[in-house]
Design a protein around this nucleic acid. Structure first.
Length: 408
DNA sequence: AACAACGTCAACCGCGCAAGC
DNA sequence: TGCTTGCGCGGTTGACGTTGT
């Protein structure tokens, strides 16, 4: 309470860093590591507060930072994770290797947020603005439920990310001590190694409190497995299907942080065009064709054509989806279609990237509301497909490894 | 050419959490 | 158990660059 700001001391410099200061900080950390940030400035001969040094290092000087324009995939990742996690920039950054939370935050505020707003999408709720206005009480309630569940899951995500981060640090230092590369930390899944390494720790990171019902992502997995179509009797349906996926051994998480294994639900119905040559997590979006290779990313709004209409259907679909989770509604389309794989034909990427060539009527400016047809014949079934794909893509994201986070 | 408006982003601020005492 | 300290996070600011008038 009332703690004085760390930079209150007279004589401490503020404002932009000079190259000389950068050099000093860099040289010191390279030689000694940062250690205590508070003590660092004096040791490094800097007239800065420790906080400023830490910020400068983490956001700018750290060698494993990728600077420059965000790729299309990174943008997609940010949007999807933001839909799930909200303004949890550090958690989002965990999934974007070599990007800092500050950079992501800035990019969101200056680019993505504006684009979504321009398209008539609420950047906070990721719902069409008019939809929010029209939503009835019931819809609001279900949306709130979904949001609530997402909060539980995001808390869990963070805890696990932290766990992995710690385990990485430990394994790294362990490797350094041993002086040889061990299969110990690198070959097993991070979650496994985390649990092993945690034996050194008095106690594991506290798991988030249990959600009121199965977490949203468990539900999503059940959804993806089509399992809860088999028994749609209320919440029990969900619980009865979580075991189907087979990766729910952890009492605290359904996440797979395996470094080598591909995400559980990779490339449904499509090829994997990711090179991942820089060890990026396998952030793959459900869908085919995506053929991101064939997509010419242009400056500005070009790449966003189609997103406005698609996101409308995604978001609207959330209401229905949530109702289904409550066991009060059954996904008729899925039921009648039978094959779940058939439904998951088109991924978020595709939906995001639909170009005018597919639907010339689409425009990037404010036309979202009226564009409810993706290519004319898109009707009710597409509506549910979009919803399904939206969550598939988020699931894939979540299943992808955060192990190369710059935070590690 | 000068000024205003707007956009971008590095850096700062304040708060909350957790560890240590 | 309560207080202090250090760290990390998210929100905000302000300097600087770019574009428009």
């Amino acid at each position: 309470m009332g703690r004085s700001p760390c930079c209150d001391k007279v004589g401490l410099k503020k404002g932009p860093w000079t190259p000389e200061e950068d050099q000093k900080l860099l040289a010191y950390i390279e030689e000694h590591g940062h250690g205590s940030w508070r003590a660092l400035p004096a040791k490094a001969g800097l007239q800065r507060c420790g906080k400023s040094c830490r910020l400068r290092w983490t956001n700018y000087l750290r060698p494993d930072i990728k600077r420059g324009k965000f790729s299309l995939q990174e943008e997609q990742t940010i949007i999807q994770l933001h839909a799930l996690l909200g303004n949890r920039w550090s958690a989002i950054a965990t999934h974007l290797p070599k990007r800092t939370d500050n950079e992501i935050k800035n990019y969101w505020n200056t680019h993505l947020k504006k684009r979504l707003t321009k398209m008539g999408i609420d950047p906070v709720t990721h719902k069409p603005k008019n939809d929010a206005l029209l939503s009835s009480d019931g819809q609001s309630k279900t949306a709130a439920n979904l949001s609530h569940m997402a909060q539980w899951e995001s808390a869990r995500l963070e805890a696990e990310a932290r766990l992995v981060r710690e385990s990485k640090l430990r394994s790294h230092s362990l490797q350094q001590q041993i002086g040889s590369s061990s299969t110990f930390a690198s070959s097993s899944s991070a979650s496994t190694s985390a649990s092993v390494l945690n034996n050194n720790k008095p106690e594991a990171p506290p798991p988030p409190p249990p959600p009121p019902s199965r977490s949203s992502l468990d539900v999503l997995k059940a959804w993806n497995n089509g399992g809860w179509l088999k028994s749609s009797e209320g919440s029990g349906a969900i619980a009865s299907t979580v075991g189907v996926s087979g990766d729910l051994e952890s009492p605290t998480s359904t996440l797979s942080f395996s470094e080598n294994a591909p995400p559980i639900m990779n490339s449904i119905g499509g090829e994997n065009n990711n090179n991942n040559d820089n060890a990026m997590p396998m952030i793959e979006f459900v869908g085919s064709s995506g053929n991101s290779s064939s997509l010419v990313k242009e400056e500005g709004e070009q790449e966003w054509k189609g997103y406005d209409s698609s996101i409308n259907t995604f978001s609207s679909g959330l209401h229905e989806f949530t109702m289904a989770m409550e066991g009060t509604w059954v996904h008729e389309t899925l039921r009648t279609n039978g094959s779940h794989d058939d439904i998951v034909e088109e991924g978020f990427t595709n939906l995001l990237l639909k170009t005018n060539s597919e639907d010339p009527s689409l425009s990037s400016e404010g036309g979202g509301e009226s564009n409810n047809g993706d290519g004319g014949s898109a009707g009710h079934s597409d509506f549910y497909e979009d919803n399904n794909n939206y969550w598939n893509s988020i699931l894939n994201l979540v299943n992808s490894s955060p192990s190369h986070s710059p935070m590690f």
